[in-house]
């Protein structure tokens, strides 16, 4: 195939190479490698403390990295941050903060608006459309302190939608959300995927993980497995993620100072 030789290979949407993150003395992520293409809905699952949130944060430069690198479309995050959306965990913010639902969703536009400028009418239109998509338009002028847990989560989702990104990182978007809300969020995620976006969703419920995601990333300190859900969701691999061999790895990580081992 001569044509494929002449055109340079398209870089993957997200490529992670040998990523290592440590908190204090303890490694949280250890030599993570990953390459993901466009239009995929990826679930990140693993036990507590497996480094799921840390992986997301490290990808977006929110946590210091001890080694390795992350590329989006072959470029560092800082150059493409306007093409990457983020849904943090709900508890990370103060929901008594005096802003309205609309204000929060508009924050998703701030990366595009640029310094010193105010949101335009067009930005407001986008924000309204995003609120409509998560069925929160009637709540646009509410103070965020008056929202329920599921509504808060949908506000965060709407804010990420307003970013109009191509890659999304979502940290536990289903935590503390009722079943109906969860279903409506899944619909939104699939719509985004069908539009060609790639989504990484931290999730902790195994049975639903199997239904929701195209691909699963089993994570415990490093990548246990990554691939189509049907292939990866096996008793053997899950066992290796949630118990058995890998806990030994984490024990070694904890004792690293004494052992002096390094990769």
């Amino acid at each position: 195939m001569p044509s494929s030789l002449s055109t340079p290979a398209i870089p993957p949407v997200l490529e992670i190479h040998d990523l290592t993150v440590a908190y204090r003395r303890k490694p949280v992520l250890w030599g993570v490698d990953l390459a993901v293409g466009p239009g995929q809905l990826v679930g990140i699952i693993g036990p507590n403390g497996a480094g799921k949130s840390t992986l997301i944060k490290a990808c977006m430069g929110l946590t210091p990295v001890q080694g390795g690198w992350v590329r989006f479309w072959g470029r560092p995050f800082a150059e493409v941050c306007s093409r990457v959306g983020y849904v943090p965990q709900r508890e990370t913010v103060d929901w008594d903060f005096p802003v309205s639902v609309m204000d929060v969703v508009l924050m998703g536009r701030y990366g595009r608006i640029g310094l010193f400028r105010r949101p335009s009418r067009a930005d407001r239109e986008v924000a309204r459309a995003c609120l409509e998509q998560v069925q929160l338009l009637p709540y646009a002028d509410r103070q965020i302190s008056n929202l329920s847990g599921g509504q808060q989560q949908r506000v965060f989702l709407a804010r990420a939608l307003a970013q109009e990104a191509e890659v999304y990182f979502m940290d536990e978007p289903f935590a503390g959300v009722d079943a109906a809300t969860e279903a409506s969020i899944v619909v939104v995620l699939r719509t985004l995927r069908d539009r060609g976006c790639t989504l990484f969703v931290v999730h902790h419920d195994l049975p639903t993980a199997r239904q929701y995601f195209d691909r699963l990333l089993l994570l415990n300190l490093n990548v246990v497995a990554f691939g189509p859900t049907a292939e990866v969701f096996t008793a053997d691999l899950l066992q290796r993620t949630y118990g058995g061999r890998l806990t030994l790895l984490s024990e070694v990580a904890q004792a690293l100072g004494a052992q002096g081992g390094s990769r």
Partner: peptide, 8 residues
């Protein structure tokens, strides 16, 4: 964190 992720 969100603000930083947007490059602000």
């Amino acid at each position: 964190a969100f603000a930083r992720s947007q490059g602000l």
